[in-house]
Design a protein around this nucleic acid. Structure first.
Length: 508
RNA sequence: GGGCGUAUAGCUCAAUGGUAGAGCAGUGGCCUUUUAAGCCAUUUGUUCUGGGUUCGAGUCCCAGUACGCUCACCA
């Protein structure tokens, strides 16, 4: 590994330390409080007007350093906050010189002393002893910041997105707002879990390695089990396994986990992403809509502490019920085309051509409708909106409407023009399900796409009898994007997928 | 996969085809209340990679790589 000049200097410091019989990476730390605990305790002692000194041993990473002749200031940071260390020759004697010689920004330091306020009023630890806890050899990208009128101002930064994602550890270390995004993400997941648990759902885990993939329309990643001589797929959804559990009498189940789709990467697509799916016996899609509103609102309250948030400079309000938009009516309104009048690919295509709407020749009816939705409806769904009643062709796992077999009881939820969730009254009729699978297989064959064999075991499960139920799937990453005002999915995934680098450029 | 853009010091960025620079970081010095500390001095480059044009290329051309935006794809 090639070290640069700065790194060589710091390695040399480690070598010198060892000559003095000291270690750069001691095994144990001996702190007795976190940084926030210490400052809180001191503030309390101040208000209680207690005279005895408040002493602590604290530790953290040095984030700033101001050295004067006979004194020095450094801010240290742990995950609870920042505090200033005040080092003076008065308390430290010649050990101050040791500090000046061997400590750098980025190092982890442990310091003992008593809490005080400096002349400018900042809570600080007046240090009477300290030691190195871990030496940083590589300098962290410089990111200086200060609070001006409550606003965080950053003067230089670590902003190249590529390096930020490739070296997320450094990104997290220098950009507090990035740490905040991932704290919020965890709060969201915890809140969703709490909400579902409160509603008597059972959290389960289903296979990620699947012999037959299904539950969504996406290309899978393929892998192989050597001993069994069997090709396996990384799941593209949880759906078919979770619904098997309803056959088994687990009436309310959910899973939060990773899906893998071998598709294009974009600001809202990552090859692996986190999904929440739940299934609830005796729910239909209307009940799922009500439940979804409550669940998202609950997540916002828990993760953000409020039900309004700003995304892309637009105020989104979750406190009100979501708009509910019928797909047929809405397409008619926006394009003048009544899809119910055009039951096949040819007639709908002709209607679109008559309106000068272009499409790829040979596109099946379902995908034409999908295109109309994507082009004319979705971008307008800024405030939370449920778009409901999808054509059966693109909804092979959803139940048909009792009064209209060409339409299914399915909805998708949108916020800020982005698809967030997908849900339906689940198809529990094994005979209809088999017809749909066969139809789907035909569509795939004509599309010259991946061969997607019928999941016979799923049909067998359904033949045992599946209760009527509602199901729901939501991208956790996208919800996190919304709640953290992130413009790309990579901002909310700790280690997003990036193209592999050449080995010769990978090395420093 | 297509189009457009970007790639220069550890970080953020400059540089008419004519000696590759600044701020911060680093190093040395001064400094007992700083907080983007200050002052003085000072070090650092495969200008993404490989070709080409030219007396001369960070700059122009071609190819490649990565990233960003965008389009396509995406039940």
């Amino acid at each position: 590994m090639e070290l640069n000049e700065l790194e060589k200097i710091r390695v040399e410091k480690i070598r010198k330390l060892e000559q003095f019989g000291l270690v750069a990476y001691p095994t144990r730390a001996n702190i007795d409080a976190t940084i926030s605990q210490a400052s809180n305790a001191f503030e309390k002692a101040e208000t209680d007007e207690k005279d005895q000194p408040v002493e602590f041993t604290l530790a953290g990473r040095m984030r700033s350093l101001r050295v004067m002749g006979k004194l020095a200031f450094t801010h240290i940071e742990d995950s609870t906050g920042k505090i200033q260390l005040f080092l003076r020759i008065n308390e430290l004697g010649e050990k101050l010189q040791f500090f000046k010689d061997f400590f750098d920004i980025g190092d982890f330091i442990e310091a003992h002393g008593s809490m005080m306020r400096t002349k400018s009023g900042e809570i600080s630890l007046l240090v009477d002893d300290f030691r190195l806890l871990a030496k940083a050899i590589s300098p962290l990208p410089a990111a200086k910041e200060e609070m001006v009128d409550g606003e965080l101002v950053r003067y230089t930064g670590f902003s190249d997105p590529e390096i930020r994602y490739r070296q997320r550890y450094a990104d997290l270390a220098v950009n507090p707002n990035v740490r905040e995004i991932f704290r919020t993400r965890t709060k969201i997941v915890n809140a969703l879990r709490e909400f579902l648990d409160m509603n008597d759902f059972l959290e389960v885990e289903t296979p990620i390695l699947q012999p037959i993939y299904g539950g969504a329309a996406a290309k899978p990643f393929t892998t192989h089990h050597n001993q069994l001589h069997q090709d396996l797929y990384l799941r593209i959804s949880f759906e078919l396994y979770l619904k098997r559990l309803l056959v088994g009498g687990l009436d309310r189940v959910y899973e939060i986990g990773r899906d893998f789709r071998n598709e294009g990467v974009s600001y809202k697509h990552n090859p692996e992403f986190t999904q929440l799916e739940f299934y609830c016996a005796y729910f239909d899609y209307l009940k799922v809509m009500d439940f979804t509103e409550k669940m998202i609102r609950f997540a916002a309250e828990k993760a953000l502490g409020r039900t309004q948030f700003t995304y892309n400079n637009v105020e989104i309000d979750l406190s009100k019920p979501w708009a509910r938009v019928n797909m047929r009516d809405s397409i008619l309104e926006k394009t003048g085309i009544d899809i119910s009048q055009y039951p096949d690919q040819e007639s709908l295509g002709a209607a679109m051509t008559a309106k000068s709407i272009q499409f790829k020749p040979g596109t099946p009816r379902g995908k034409l409708i999908d295109q109309l939705v994507g082009d004319y409806l979705e971008p307008a769904f800024i405030q939370p909106t449920f778009l409901y009643d999808y054509p059966w062709e693109i909804s092979p796992l959803a139940k048909r409407k009792p009064d209209d077999p060409t339409t299914t009881e399915r909805f998708e939820g949108f916020i800020a023009g982005m698809e967030l969730c997908n849900a339906f009254t689940e198809l529990n009729d094994p005979i209809d399900q088999e017809i749909r699978f066969l139809e789907l297989g035909r569509a795939y064959a004509s599309d010259d796409d991946e061969n997607n064999p019928i999941d016979e075991d799923y049909l067998r499960a359904m033949r045992y009898g599946m209760p009527p139920c509602g199901g729901f799937g939501m991208g956790i990453d996208r919800l996190t994007m919304l709640f953290t005002d992130s413009r790309t999915i990579r901002e909310v995934i700790l280690f997003p997928h990036l193209r592999e680098r050449d080995s010769n450029t990978e090395e420093e």
